[in-house]
Nucleic acid binder design. Sequence first.
DNA 1: CTGTTAGCGCTTTCAG
DNA 2: CTGAAAGCGCTAACAG
Lengths: 342, 342
Amino acid sequence: MTKPKQVTIVEVAEAAGVSIATVSNVLNRGGIRSSKETIRKVELAAEQLGYRRNTMAAGLSRSKTYEIGLIIPALTSYYGQLAEHLQIEAHNAGYHLSVFSSGGFDPDIERRHLEVLLQRRVDGLICHGLAMGFETTRSIVNSGTPLVLINGWNWPEDIATGAVNLGFAGACRESVKLLAERGCGAICYIGSKRSKVIDEQRLLGFHAGIAQYGSGLKHEIVDAIGLDAEAYLKDLVQRHDRPVGIVAFDDYVALRILSAANKLHIDMPNRLKLIGINNEYMAKESYPGISSWDIPYNDQSQMAVAKLLHKLGHQAESGEEREIEVPLTFIERETTKSYESE
Amino acid sequence: MTKPKQVTIVEVAEAAGVSIATVSNVLNRGGIRSSKETIRKVELAAEQLGYRRNTMAAGLSRSKTYEIGLIIPALTSYYGQLAEHLQIEAHNAGYHLSVFSSGGFDPDIERRHLEVLLQRRVDGLICHGLAMGFETTRSIVNSGTPLVLINGWNWPEDIATGAVNLGFAGACRESVKLLAERGCGAICYIGSKRSKVIDEQRLLGFHAGIAQYGSGLKHEIVDAIGLDAEAYLKDLVQRHDRPVGIVAFDDYVALRILSAANKLHIDMPNRLKLIGINNEYMAKESYPGISSWDIPYNDQSQMAVAKLLHKLGHQAESGEEREIEVPLTFIERETTKSYESE
DNA sequence: CTGTTAGCGCTTTCAG
DNA sequence: CTGAAAGCGCTAACAG
């Protein structure tokens, strides 16, 4: 069980009867500029010996790792999905993505992972805004490692790094619009202070929506943490005659609301209309189905990777603007509309 | 924006007026056997220059990476959680964990990630049974890299590698028992063929339960994929006078069932009793709450890492048995029991 | 087309 | 306690 000495190009070279340089050329540079015969010999030898390139040696020698690091606040739901997509995009670009979770916004863990990544000399970094403190980020930027942020809004100029953000504000604004149009007399945003910057974006959009479409409408803002959904909802509905609209922080919060509503036998969508965000499984499979905003994982991932590649000098497009925004798309379900046929 | 040449021990050595060997000793070997004065000088120089150790060089030189690779089928729900916990355990042991998702059971991606990890010369590997084919696994074992499996049951002797498995079978058996005791006249398992080996385990337990506690009980087995939950449920309930019990593959499937039941106004838990697995958010927050089996992430992670360390020669305990099993714990909610007080 | 050789940055004997 | 020197495995000129 002791790790048998791994085979190196030296051994392959010997077996194939060529020099190590030739082996390197054949195996790791696409066999260009080598005779067919040599290529064959080398590949055969490598195959038989079970050669496997040592990334550390290669990286050290070229001072380029083809690795890009990802730091996200968690590995669940949205973040997990995102990581998955990014992994694919990175691969398509010839890089490979190492994923690290900062374990729910823990700045120490964040620092630690970052340090590991930097010590690894990753070529670039993709980080979620939530997982990054300003200080940490500044130190990356100073280290010279290219960085693109995901969901990082309005970062200080001196550490501006390019970001691709989700259009949460827009989604919330449109949610308000829709709820207003559907006849809600009061609209309420249930946020989550825990995800500060993201909550701010939602709130921004919510307020914009109220300002634009909600004249004469009552509105209020509460936080999901520690909220007694049942009590709140009961009270909310009692206080208003017309239908009530709720914009939930995400589908998790929305599910809590929906369950409370079910328990109280509140008529959805006639008495209460509910919109979540993220379009997760539970939104689709709960009863009634929760209207929600779908996340364009593909677009966001593609853009993030493209932007990073650009910084890495790959001369791709889409590297100009500092922040770019990706819009969500609304998926309507029974919490906002009664289905006739469908 | 071009990557400024990173500082190396050579520069630190110069700045501190000592040799690179000394720098290495101080910085990366805990400053043992060095005079206080030297230590101070070196640390100061390193600090000022912003020295950051190059992992590749270090790893290459010691042929030891302190990295362990993780391959899981996805980054969502259970898998994401698991990864998160493993990351912590690994860290506590002085290792760092690189996470890779094989993008939903895709054998090509699996192979690719594996190759990357092996080329990185990770010290060890933790893989989820679902994400691994036998062939792939055999090649790891042959490569000499220690491997511990998570949820890998009954692997062929020649690639037996040690596994820490969740007690799904036990959970399902006990679910049947509970449903039988609670007066169900028919018990039904709704599986998911997509997760083959896991489904098998559940089924194993289900059958054991039926054999042991379900004499005279009707039982049936269906698959969640493509299932019309509403139609199925309607029919199921009509066919039986006594309460019907359902053991769902996981909480995702359970949620679908629950939604269908709500839609059909089936009385839970009196007419229908439902048990999920994984104890995810939706089980806790749906209405009625779904009884489910909680996963001991901590235990499983600890054991997996401990087992791997053992193989790495860390001489820890718990490395003897080839497969070890971690039991789940039942969390009862309203889908199986009416609450009076809570 | 192929081989020689000088590193990449760090660890690790082994002398001093 | 400190330093000189020999690698770790691979890449990248540069000659042949």
